[in-house]
């Protein structure tokens, strides 16, 4: 076998390999289909709006909300602390740059349940298992948290805690979304400082 034949064979083999290998820079699912199907109907991949309200009121850096709506809708109002990744730009915004922290929970939300669940499958398929969906999206947030009312004569301690949680989250949501953009960060920071001083920390 002469040198020309050897080079030709190597080139053909390399071409064959490249033909079937994933494209460079192309995203592909890492998880096995069987594993993905296992959690498809799993309630553990959902977070309720009340759970989000608790996280918001505690304001601990253990979660990151991801708003999948358009930039314009996000600017009008959003759940405090959210980052905006419009669903259509899921890949454009390079998931590895905003889903990089494996120590925290990423919670997707849109207006409803469709885009957030598409995004959840994409994120989990790419190997980001710490992603969840806020069940019902912003429509459920408004229905449960923003429009919560207590009507009745007696309130149980559990109901009271739930109502207080929703009220605090609603007040925070309304206050921060009523501010001009220039004051939003200062407001959030002052809220954190106030919480720290109440806990006995330093200002």
């Amino acid at each position: 076998m002469n040198a020309r034949q050897k080079i030709s064979i190597i080139l053909v083999a390399t071409s064959l390999m490249l033909l079937f290998l994933p494209g460079i820079g192309e995203y592909s699912f890492q998880e096995k289909p069987g594993k993905m199907v296992q959690w498809i109907n799993d309630d553990d991949s959902f977070v309720t709006v009340d759970e989000v309200a608790v996280l918001l009121n505690k304001d601990e850096p253990v979660f990151q909300l991801i708003d999948l709506r358009s930039e314009e809708a996000f600017k009008l109002f959003n759940i405090p602390g959210s980052i905006n990744i419009p669903f259509q730009q899921f890949f454009e915004k390079q998931p590895e740059t905003w889903l990089y922290n494996h120590e925290i929970q990423y919670i997707f939300y849109g207006n409803g349940d469709v885009n957030s669940n598409y995004a959840l499958v994409l994120a989990r398929g790419l190997g980001y298992e710490n992603c969840f969906v806020m069940k019902g999206g912003l429509n459920e947030w408004f229905n449960t948290v923003m429009n919560s009312k207590f009507s009745g004569e007696r309130i149980t301690p559990r109901e009271n805690a739930l109502f207080e949680n929703r009220l605090k989250a609603r007040q925070y949501f309304t206050a921060i979304n009523s501010l001009p953009d220039s004051l939003k960060i200062k407001f959030a920071e002052s809220k954190r400082q106030a919480a720290r001083s109440l806990d006995g920390g330093c200002n």
């Binding site: 207006n111 408004f142 923003m146 979304n177 501010l179």
Partner: peptide, 14 residues
Amino acid sequence: EDFKYQFQPDTNSY
């Protein structure tokens, strides 16, 4: 994916 409510900002808050 339609938003079914209306957000009313509190213009007195700041």
